[in-house]
Write a protein that binds this DNA or RNA. Structure first.
Lengths: 219, 219
DNA sequence: TAATATTTTGTACAGGCATACAATTTATTG
DNA sequence: CAATAAATTGTATGCCTGTACAAAATATTA
């Protein structure tokens, strides 16, 4: 046999366990406080086990980011499936980038830390590109059919920039809910389109007014 | 005499030199690679000198962030002084947050690193609050006279969030110029206001159309 | 110049880190 | 039940870090 017939599965299990433990440590202690010893302790294993299943710490980190990225993208498609109109698809994309369970300060800080580390670590930069490309691709499916490429570029950039900015503020400790974040982005983009465009996308005016309420009056 | 009559100035000089050296190391090696030894070497001094002028590494870091923050705020007031109309004041505020000389990937990465570190370091969090408060205060001087507090909150949040997001994208390696960044923010906020409001702020329509060109068509 | 204060140096120390690895335990197979 | 392979442990090692500090060099003062 050229390939091993029944590959041991414990290896895959341990890898996932360690990656998830790394994720938890990351959330708790940040990128700087994430040591191999802590990761292994969090996973309930011996400190040396990491070297057995991974080539090094970087490999765990990379696995971790890929893991949480996949979770996020799954959330987006889950939202997308429930959308009926184009505008609901847009809202679903935005909502998918502010998951209720995950939009907290620790997660935000983790994400920002990765952005910071992307400067020196090529793997992170790659993952970021994948992330932005997917977001742009999703947005294109909504907007490109009805507006020019130039205006789409502006809208896509504005959307992604606001998403990033809101996560950054969350990391800085700002008290922003995901509802408010979604409302801000959606309302902001809606203002960029004229009445006929909004009609084409089948924007529900009532829903929109509902959203507006959740942005202001937070002082 | 209760107070020393002529305090030695060399102390202040060395402090500034070390802070600036720290800044350069920060730009070059990131927050993680910024060691005391490197800072001293960059300043052309002995590795032990840091402990003589500062209580510890954190004090240097804090001084560094305060230093670069002051530079940024000076840029804003410089722009503000040249503004004649309210809308030009708004543009000046935004422009001040994207200084031509400083809007590069390294600086962006430094700023993002600080945001990430603010999670564990209280000093950084304080500096961030000061930064956001000043931005909001500047924006208030433009918008609060003509719109409701609720709408102002939304506009201020959108503005600051876009600024942060653009810096984050810059840190991620995106090829965005400061012109384009300013154009995006200004155009985005302009779309939030109706014609009479824009007239009150004395928006020059021609300038605005000029800006629009620099946003799109970057593929 | 002599004496004193200030500034700078180089090194040494203690602690945390990632990683490597021999020893031990646990599972698998003939 | 051996005997062999796989999985896990605990520890040791070497590197890098921030910081402390005594010694040396330089400046200041009397």
């Amino acid at each position: 046999m050229a390939i091993k017939p029944k590959r041991t599965r414990i290896e895959d299990i341990r890898r996932v366990e360690l990656v998830q433990a790394a994720y938890r440590v990351f959330m708790l202690h940040g990128l700087g406080g994430m040591t191999t010893a802590r990761i292994c302790a969090e996973a309930g294993m011996s400190p040396g086990i990491l070297a057995y299943y991974f080539k090094g710490k970087d490999e765990v980190l990379f696995g971790m980011v890929r893991y949480s990225n996949r979770v996020l993208s799954q959330d987006v498609v889950a939202h997308l499936h429930q959308a009926k109109t184009p505008w609901q698809r847009f809202e679903a994309i935005v909502e998918g980038n502010f998951p209720d369970q995950a939009f907290d300060r620790n997660t935000a800080n983790a994400w920002v830390s990765v952005c910071a580390a992307a400067h020196t670590n090529t793997n992170y930069a790659k993952l970021q590109n994948i992330f932005y490309r997917r977001l742009t691709s999703n947005l294109a499916s909504v907007f490109l059919p009805i507006i020019s490429a130039d205006r789409f570029d502006a809208i896509a950039l504005a959307t992604s920039v606001m998403i990033d900015g809101l996560w950054l503020r969350k990391a800085a400790g700002a008290t922003i809910t995901c509802q408010k974040s979604v409302a801000l982005v959606v309302q902001q983009i809606a203002a960029q389109l004229d009445a006929t465009e909004l009609a084409t996308l089948q924007l529900n005016v009532k829903d929109q007014q509902e959203r507006l309420k959740s942005i202001g009056s937070h002082r």
